[in-house]
């Protein structure tokens, strides 16, 4: 039985002398929600780039459910069940909302249960001739896409025929998350999902994640988040990164009130009232 979860061991990434990620180790088990916090430039996004295979680590290893992934391409890693969002949402601007979400389920359409991909000829025949087996697969994927869009109430579903470029900033974030969820990932990596959202929208997102935790108890969620009030509500554990290193890893209340963390965030020891949200970038 292979080790379940995402296991990051001693991973580093250097950009021309700058150690963006410096010997980081962490784990994300299924069903668990871990928040990564830290000041701007701490290496949080880079870590997500490395786990998702969009960028390559210089050293260290990453395993997903026992499979070593640090040399795999990002599409392979995604098909292992790792879905990620981008700090600046990436939504296929000219595609409609509906098409964008369907792109998310496409890998499931062409993947056999064994994990191998259906060959292009079979895929072409299925798509062109509308064969029965293919249509059933398409129907199932479309149902997943519809369900994912409807998770966001009337934010996205009524806009499904609009191009993504016409969406508001917050809706683009929602669309990106919907695209990930449609693929029913085992692990979800979210890079600042609430950035650019107002308090009401942030509250909505918090509820969405809490709901997800209930409806998908087997999904591991790694979320990079600056809004610490939200972190306190959704996370089981918090990993604080600073200058590419793990500063502390603990339960949210312990980690976030730790003097070193407060200092890393605010540049001086905490005095007086406990701070709520750190606003960086």
């Amino acid at each position: 039985m292979a080790v379940q979860g995402i296991v990051v061991e001693n991973v580093s990434r250097v950009f021309g002398g700058l150690k963006a990620v410096d010997g980081v180790s962490l784990t994300l088990a299924r069903g668990e929600t871990v928040a990564i916090v830290g000041p701007n430039g701490a290496g949080k996004s880079t870590l997500v780039q490395l786990i998702s295979g969009v960028d390559r680590a210089d050293s260290g290893s990453i395993h997903v459910d026992g499979v070593r992934t640090d040399r795999l391409s990002s599409d392979r890693i995604a098909r292992l069940g790792v879905g990620r969002s981008f700090q600046t949402s990436r939504v296929f601007p000219a595609l409609t909302v509906w098409d964008s979400v369907l792109v998310g389920v496409q890998p499931g359409l062409i993947e056999r249960p064994s994990g191998r991909l259906i060959d292009p000829v079979t895929e072409s025949l299925g798509a062109l001739l509308g064969l029965g087996f293919w249509r059933r697969r398409v129907k199932a994927q479309e149902a997943a896409a519809e369900a994912a869009l409807k998770l966001f109430g009337d934010r996205l579903w009524p806009r499904r025929d609009q191009p993504a470029l016409s969406l508001s900033y917050a809706n683009r974030r929602r669309l990106e998350i919907a695209r990930l969820l449609a693929a029913e990932p085992r692990y979800l990596l979210l890079d600042e999902p609430s950035a650019g959202m107002n308090p009401t929208e942030t509250e909505e997102l918090t509820h969405l994640i809490l709901d997800l935790r209930r409806t998908h108890p087997q999904t591991g969620i790694l979320v990079i988040e600056h809004k610490l009030s939200m972190v306190r509500r959704i996370a089981d554990r918090v990993v604080v990164l600073n200058q590419g290193r793990v500063l502390i890893e603990d339960k949210p209340d312990h980690a976030l009130d730790h003097p070193e963390v407060v200092e890393a965030y605010l540049g001086k020891p905490r005095t007086g009232a406990s701070f709520q949200d750190a606003h960086h970038g």
Binding site: V54, D75, F92, D99, L102, V103, P107, S124, A127, V138
Partner: peptide, 29 residues
Amino acid sequence: ERYVSSPIGRVWRAIREDRLAAQASGLPV
């Protein structure tokens, strides 16, 4: 036309729109 209106055509357009995101979504670009 059948190709481009099929899911395959959708993937092509997704690759055009954002190759990185298409690959990170699990598509063998």
